[in-house]
Design a protein around this nucleic acid. Structure first.
Lengths: 243, 243
DNA sequence: CGGTCAATTGATGTAGTTCAAGGTTAGTGG
DNA sequence: CCACTAACCTTGAACTACATCAATTGACCG
């Protein structure tokens, strides 16, 4: 049995953003941690973009509300992510805590001042924005081209890659978000998400330890998962032995 | 009969980006115009992001190719737009001319230097990126929530708003892109786009002047178009008299 | 224990895809 | 001038993946 991976379980290494002598993260270092209860809103779409936030722990959902009451989740944020770098005067989306989470808050003016003062900060901010743009485009491809099974696999793979130990042999994910969140992220209904999970369990790609605790999912065939997600060329490894 | 609006018809006022004394557009002023034949590629996804481009005339498509040969168009670029501000080391998507188009080319290093040198340039670049991000999120909503008719109306409305005279009573659009481009942009098949157009003609929202020249479309009921697109609260104006 | 909430499962409906055919235009060459 | 071809668009018929509606289950909780 492999170790359970969860973002909410404690401080996570920031492999993608190592803390150098001068880094964007240094700006947050002195800021106090703030705790957010599950469901608590950090800011709302259209608000004055007064702060940026560093996620320390937990998980947040970024979403836009549509006129008919529906909701489109444009992304999830995990420890190490910086939230609210919209580059505009107002926030583009709303952000809520998916589960109990902690963040640090930095006034936007402070970040702007740092960008002005230190040329080394600027490429980091640009890189954050570029990453967000790339993620948005990946999401457009997902919504344009992928079926429900592929969407779910893409989501799980993305979550896996942002978890602590993506290389684990049989990684076990602890999903903090509910099925409705996943559905709103993948452009599906909750029922279709549920059926996609069942189908992947039937195929042996996923396993659920305890039928009752359904947010804990073991990936029994990671390679096959990646293959279905469409992020791997469907070449040598056949469906039979993949995973 | 109203005047035909086309982006390719000549220089267009840049209402959104007025040329001030010091502007991003000043950097392009001295650059020579380059002509692109229809279908000509400007750069390819993954290329070193060596230049940024100002569109002077025509229309460009920005797209990403998917493994199975399909293509997702993430946006169209029109006169006044700046192409290739990806903020990263590599271009995020490929860009091709939809029709005969002209652009000006600026080395990225020159733009970066200007951003370093003049604080007034920076917010303009940021604002461009923020606009792109907002467009990407609108597109996610379109792909997540809207049906084929709503998608088509959103597209036509977007095109109308970027054309020279969006307020025209019965605006007449001259679409430079083919049905396949529209389909790849809206996440539909070419057949579904065609049927959506037919349906909107039947409803009296659109009119086609000449059955043979099907890229020229008159919007007979602009208000109804906006209402179907979902960008207007479906309140007072009923479907009967809208438009 | 009854109530609520999240998730699953089944039955049915439908919007959009797929496959196939036909029409119009433009270009080419005799 | 007409035949021939290649694009591009439209239309029809059949199929399918997902949505919708409805019922069931298990966990948690006052």
């Amino acid at each position: 049995m492999s170790a359970v991976m969860e973002h909410g379980g404690g401080p996570v290494q920031r492999l993608a953003h190592p803390a150098r002598a001068i880094s964007l993260y240094d700006l947050f270092r002195k800021q106090p941690a703030e705790y957010l209860c599950p469901g608590r809103s950090l800011f709302v779409e259209g608000d004055d973009a007064a702060h940026v936030f560093e996620v320390l722990d937990g998980a947040l959902r970024v979403f836009k509300s549509v006129s008919d009451g529906r909701r489109v989740i444009t992304g999830f944020m995990y420890p190490g992510d910086i939230v609210g770098v919209s580059l505009g005067k107002h926030y583009l989306g709303s952000v809520e805590a998916v589960c109990g989470s902690t963040v640090r808050r930095l006034p936007r003016s402070r970040m702007d001042a740092a960008v002005d003062a230190d040329k080394r900060i600027r490429p980091m901010v640009f890189s954050l924005v570029a990453d967000e743009m790339a993620a948005a485009q990946r999401q457009m491809i997902l919504l344009s081209c992928k079926n429900s099974e592929e969407r779910l696999c893409s989501f799980l793979l993305e979550y896996l890659n942002r978890s602590a130990f993506p290389g684990e042999r049989f990684p076990c994910l602890n999903l903090p978000m509910c099925r409705q969140d996943i559905a709103d992220y993948l452009g599906l209904t909750i029922e279709t998400v549920s059926r996609a999970i069942t189908k992947l369990i039937d195929k042996g790609v996923l396993q659920i330890e305890n039928a009752a605790v359904r947010q804990t999912i073991t990936i029994a065939k990671p390679l096959l998962l990646a293959q279905i997600a469409g992020e791997v060329a469907p070449s040598m490894p056949t469906a039979e032995d993949a995973g």
